[in-house]
Design a protein around this nucleic acid. Structure first.
Length: 150
DNA sequence: GCCAACGTTGGC
DNA sequence: GCCAACGTTGGC
């Protein structure tokens, strides 16, 4: 059992969208390191911090969990999609996704507040220059956030 | 809209 | 395989 922070732009998929749809496919990842986490390391049942990024109030918006094995991201084959990748083919897909299931919405914990909690100081997402959309979270960080957002 | 940081591309 | 140029992310 591992824990992750996964960034979503709420204009695209927010915590409320996830709550309404119960599960969503985590499409659109176009970074190899983030893809590799989904493809190689994530397991069904892993804990997910659902994070709102590129918005007025970036921060943690709720809890979710990984609920599928990796499978090809369909948007890579769709010429109409902004995530279309002409170098990818169904026979040799380049991009994978997992499905993520809603667990619980929390109050929004802003990035600025996350930075004020010493137990969270080492979180990958808080490190200078960190841009990865999927980052590992330690069991201690996860437990602390469960408590903080109980 | 700015820009720091980092990833990717492509010429050599 | 190096590395400069370019593109993207994402907070502010």
């Amino acid at each position: 059992m591992r824990y992750w922070l996964m960034k979503s732009e709420p204009d695209d998929v927010s915590i409320d969208d996830l709550a309404a749809r119960h599960t969503v496919g985590w499409y659109g990842v176009r970074n190899y390191q983030a893809r590799n986490f989904m493809r190689d390391t994530q397991q069904i049942g892993d804990g997910v911090l659902f994070y709102h990024s590129s918005c007025a109030e970036p921060g943690i918006a709720g809890f979710a969990r990984v609920c599928s094995a990796p499978y090809p991201d369909p948007t890579q084959f769709d010429p109409q999609s902004k995530y279309y990748d002409p170098k990818s083919t169904p026979a040799q897909p380049r991009w994978q996704q997992v499905d993520v299931a809603f667990v619980r919405k929390t109050r929004l914990l802003p990035l600025s507040e996350m930075r004020q909690h010493p137990p969270l100081a080492e979180m990958v997402v808080l490190q200078k220059g960190s841009r990865l959309s999927i980052t590992p979270v330690t069991a201690a960080e996860w437990a602390y956030l469960q408590e903080l957002l109980a």
